[in-house]
Amino acid sequence: MAVTYVLVHGAWHSGQCWARVVPRLGASGSGVFAPTLTGYGETRHLLSPDVGLGTHIADVVGLLVGEDLTDVVLVGHSYAGMVISGVANEVPERIARLVYLDAMVPTDGESALDVLPIMRDMIGSDWRVPPPPAPFGLFGLTDDADIAWLNTMVSDQSALCLREPVAMDAPALAAIPRTHVHCTVTPPGVELRPVPAVQPNGDPADVRELATGHDCMITMPAELAGMLLDIGSQASARASAPAGAGR
């Protein structure tokens, strides 16, 4: 069974941030989609106070349904951990595996501010939230060319994205396998939640690491692509296995 990768960017970014990863995944023969969520990048003119987490969940659900995608390895970077959680709650039958890429991992009813309270300091009186300042800015990039490239795509986001809770109450959601990829070079004060030893579906936790900063798709695209291909092969093998055989 061939899997399809859907790569969902995090806050302030756009789908362009995956440009170094997409061709590496596509070379395997897999389908790859890297949409830009409403209000970012080339759609920044659509940003408004009403653009929130629900908007972005609808963006990705619309892609999956519109393209009739199934057996999807759904990858969410950073804030997009919230997005992919909501997407899987709405269309669990289309998802082969969730990949939380240095991402927020919520529980039912939580917002991004619940998952990462330090982000409360980034919200002022305006509905717009600009990209964060140092030490959180530049998202772990140190190369001048990488920084210049990233600066061509980052833009503001709506505070509603961070305040809106996610629903994760569909019974089928718990059956979807998960992989967590952690970037080990982190700014002070930023900590991801510990990953429970057992996944909601009863499998042992699958936690992997990349020795780089937060925007690993820019700094380590080959290594990330190789990791995603391995995750995809596992998802394919699992889906192809006879019922009850390691599923």
Results as ranks from 00 to 15, higher is better:
residue 99 V to L: 06
residue 99 V to I: 04
residue 101 L to E: 10
residue 101 L to M: 13
residue 101 L to Y: 12
residue 102 D to R: 02
residue 102 D to E: 13
residue 103 A to Y: 01
residue 106 P to R: 00
residue 107 T to K: 07
residue 109 G to M: 13
residue 109 G to V: 12
residue 111 S to V: 03
residue 111 S to T: 11
residue 112 A to K: 10
residue 113 L to D: 06
residue 114 D to I: 04
residue 114 D to V: 06
residue 115 V to W: 01
residue 115 V to C: 04
residue 116 L to A: 14
residue 116 L to I: 15
residue 117 P to T: 06
residue 117 P to Q: 05
residue 117 P to A: 04
residue 117 P to S: 06
residue 119 M to H: 04
residue 120 R to Q: 13
residue 120 R to L: 12
residue 120 R to T: 14
residue 120 R to C: 07
residue 121 D to H: 07
residue 121 D to Y: 04
residue 121 D to W: 02
residue 122 M to F: 15
residue 122 M to E: 12
residue 123 I to T: 05
residue 124 G to F: 09
residue 126 D to R: 12
residue 127 W to L: 07
residue 127 W to K: 06
residue 127 W to H: 09
residue 129 V to R: 02
residue 130 P to Y: 09
residue 130 P to N: 07
residue 131 P to Y: 04
residue 131 P to Q: 04
residue 131 P to I: 03
residue 134 A to T: 10
residue 134 A to R: 13
residue 136 F to C: 00
residue 136 F to T: 06
residue 137 G to H: 02
residue 137 G to M: 06
residue 137 G to T: 04
residue 138 L to R: 15
residue 139 F to E: 01
residue 139 F to R: 03
residue 140 G to M: 11
residue 142 T to M: 14
residue 145 A to H: 15
residue 145 A to I: 14
residue 147 I to H: 03
residue 148 A to K: 02
residue 148 A to Y: 01
residue 149 W to H: 10
residue 149 W to A: 15
residue 149 W to E: 07
residue 149 W to Q: 07
residue 150 L to V: 15
residue 151 N to H: 14
residue 152 T to R: 08
residue 152 T to C: 11
residue 152 T to P: 08
residue 153 M to K: 03
residue 154 V to Y: 01
residue 154 V to D: 04
residue 154 V to S: 05
residue 155 S to K: 08
residue 155 S to N: 15
residue 156 D to A: 11
residue 157 Q to G: 00
residue 157 Q to R: 09
residue 157 Q to V: 09
residue 158 S to C: 04
